[in-house]
Amino acid sequence: MPREITYREALREGLDEELAHDDNVIIIGEEVAEYNGAYKVTEGLWKKWGDKRLIDAPISEAGFIGMGIGASMLGIRPVMELMFYSFAYVAFDQMMNNAATCRYMSGGLTHCPIVVRGPANGGTNVGATHSHTPENIFANMPGLKVVSPSDPHDVKGLIKSAIRDNDPVYFMESTVLYGMTGEVPSNDELDDGELIVPIGKAKVKKEGTDISLIAHGRAVVTSLLAAEILAEKYDINAEVLDLRSIRPIDEAAIMETVRKTHRAIYIEENKPFCGVGAQISSMIMEQAFDDLDAPVLRITSADAPAFYSPPIEKLQLPTAEEIVERALTIC
């Protein structure tokens, strides 16, 4: 029987293993230590690793993320938690200017091995200020890497890669996924003795032949549901490709699925204007135009700030039904 654990537990295992792997790895953030994490991601780690490695930060995102950037220049590898990725906006100068450009502006004399992680999702009725999905904004900046894992296996493997990476990695999770369970092999089941998922590699989550549903983050889960409906009700065999990393991007995997199915929809909980799907559909149009039997479609969150009222906010996010409906227009 394969081991099943939650997304939250898998993430914690990854963090714990990297704390053991490298003495320079530290975790900083609001409520990460004594409180055991606002979402219990870091539960138990302070007790195990102590004050030196798990550090409760005051509510000062620009301060502690900037501090982590400075410390990383001298070889520390800080993993910094944002309670909500929406709070990145108060640390924007540090995350966009200092983390992303110091290497370039120093002609390669510095680098910045930091991870900034936390949930970047809507759908929890916390209003617009706490529901931002900035993966496209940060992926727009050369020098940064953006990762958005959709299941327990990948969140563990990717956090380990992110911490070992020598560039700044912005790691975007989802509060809605923290309780999701999935298969995550224990280390003694693995040939390499540990689970590593490389940044920049997509994964086919469901094989198919008729249409490609390409997505990242929680939209992958929604896409898998849509694929089930398409198969059961309409005899359409959809392929679901999980991008996993947004920058760097697995371009080959995208083109491969498009060349196989000749139809593609990009699904994301991001906003539409210059969203990740805009980039992907442009790449498909440029590189696989002749393979397409229909225009590339995009399904995103509604182009409005997040609505508080729970039944209305639900309508703002992509649903399996919407994916099915749009898929039927091109199949």
Partner: peptide
């Protein structure tokens, strides 16, 4: 920049280097 001389820039945004200074001290 001259990291070999413990010199970490040279920063263009007013005040933007001040958390980095705390970070260098943190690392020490």
């Amino acid at each position: 920049f001259a990291p070999d001389k413990n010199y970490w820039g040279g920063h263009g945004i007013v005040g933007g280097q001040t958390p980095l200074g705390a970070g260098l001290a943190f690392a020490l």
